[in-house]
Simulated assay, not measured.
Amino acid sequence: MKYVRLLQDLTREDLPLVGGKGANLGELVLAGMKVPQGFVLTVEGYRRCITNVHLPKVNFKDLPALENVTSKIRMEIENANLPDEVTIEVLEAYGRMGSPKVAVRSSATAEDLPGASFAGQQETYLNIQGESAVLDAIKKCWASLWAPRAVQYRSLQGFGESDVALAVIIQKMAPHEISGVVFTVNPLSNDQSELIINATHGVGEALVQGEIIPDQWIARRPDGAALKFTPAPKNGQSPSSFIRTQRLARGCLTSQQVRELASLCLKIEEHFNGVPQDIEWSYGLGEFYILQSRPITTLNNNPQRI
């Protein structure tokens, strides 16, 4: 296929074609992690379909001005008609998966890099099902490349607009009784002997976007023993400070699950040459699924829970 690549066929060498997120997912499959089935519509698909984007001169620090000049670009992209050759490849790949509910995820060529993660700058759409819905979500992902904050962030990081394109990942929704994030080095203290696990019930997108406060464990490397645990605040409560516990881990995960997850994430860190990782995961049907891994680009930047 010209425009579609399966996740299991990707490696870090494919970053210019499938973006940082897509390339890292291929590496996770290579590392033996349980990664939900999926494929990537490469940046060649974006370039085939989106050919007339021109960003006028604007003050990148002025978000209202950016909104004015980028809103028309986003609208044109969302209303674009996809060429038949792109549509056919996408729908054939989606059909071979069994047309399930999928996550449609942006993967920019300038994201998940060691110096700039671009995390959260482009959109993800969850529980998408049906051919027309998948195609619409792809265009929305493309359009999100031109959201004001995404354009501003690229400018501040020194990326020219001609340097950036967007691949889109279409990936079967993983079971998600519990979801969360692991930092394989404690970014609150930069302590190389600790990692942090954040977890919440259900889909973890609100957690990733910083909209909810999760259960949180500080665990010991390399065995994953829980050193500190902070439960998510109940309704009406403020977050409690860290508390030490010698008992079984409480909250979303058991002590054994904390250890198992820590072990998986340290294997991922090892696969990425020992670079500390920010890892998204879910748990369901008795297994952990790895949804994404990227380098931790800031350490000890924020004294609060992350």
Rank of each mutant, 00 (worst) to 15 (best):
N186A: 14
Y94R: 13
C141D: 09
I212G: 03
L166M: 14
P187M: 03
P175A: 10
E205A: 01
G120Q: 04
Y125S: 09
V90E: 12
I213H: 08
Q192S: 13
R96N: 15
G95H: 14
A110W: 01
A206G: 03
F183L: 14
W142I: 13
I213Y: 09
S132A: 12
G95V: 07
V168R: 08
T184S: 13
A147Q: 07
H201G: 00
N198P: 03
P114N: 12
V208W: 01
I197T: 00
V168Q: 11
A199I: 01
S132T: 10
L207K: 00
Q192A: 14
W146V: 09
I197E: 01
L156F: 14
E131L: 00
G210K: 06
Y125T: 12
D112H: 01
M173N: 00
G180R: 09
S144E: 08
A133E: 14
V134I: 02
L166Q: 10
K139M: 05
G130T: 08
K172F: 00
E131F: 00
P114G: 14
I138L: 02
S179M: 04
K172T: 13
A150S: 15
S162Y: 03
V181W: 03
G204I: 08
W142S: 14
L195Y: 11
I88N: 15
L156T: 03
W146E: 09
E194D: 02
A206L: 10
S155L: 06
D136W: 04
D136G: 07
G204K: 08
L207S: 01
F118K: 07
Q121H: 11
L195C: 14
K140E: 12
P100C: 03
T109K: 02
A119H: 11
G160W: 08
D136S: 12
Q129N: 15
I178Y: 12
T124L: 02
V182W: 03
L166F: 03
G115K: 11
K101V: 14
G180A: 07
V86Q: 05
S107Q: 02
L166N: 04
R149K: 09
I128L: 04
Y153W: 11
L126M: 13
G180I: 07
A93D: 13
K172R: 13
C141N: 09
Q122C: 13
S99H: 10
L91Y: 13
P187N: 02
Q192M: 12
L156H: 10
I88G: 09
N190D: 15
G158P: 14
K101A: 15
H176D: 07
S193Y: 14
S144F: 06
E111C: 05
W146Y: 15
D112W: 02
H201I: 00
Q129K: 15
Q192P: 05
K101C: 15
N190M: 11
D136E: 15
V104H: 01
R154M: 11
P175S: 08
Q209S: 06
A165T: 07
Y125D: 09
I213G: 04
V151L: 10
A165I: 02
L188M: 10
W146R: 06
V181R: 05
V90I: 14
G115L: 06
V181S: 01
C141V: 07
G204W: 10
Q152K: 11
L126I: 12
I170V: 15
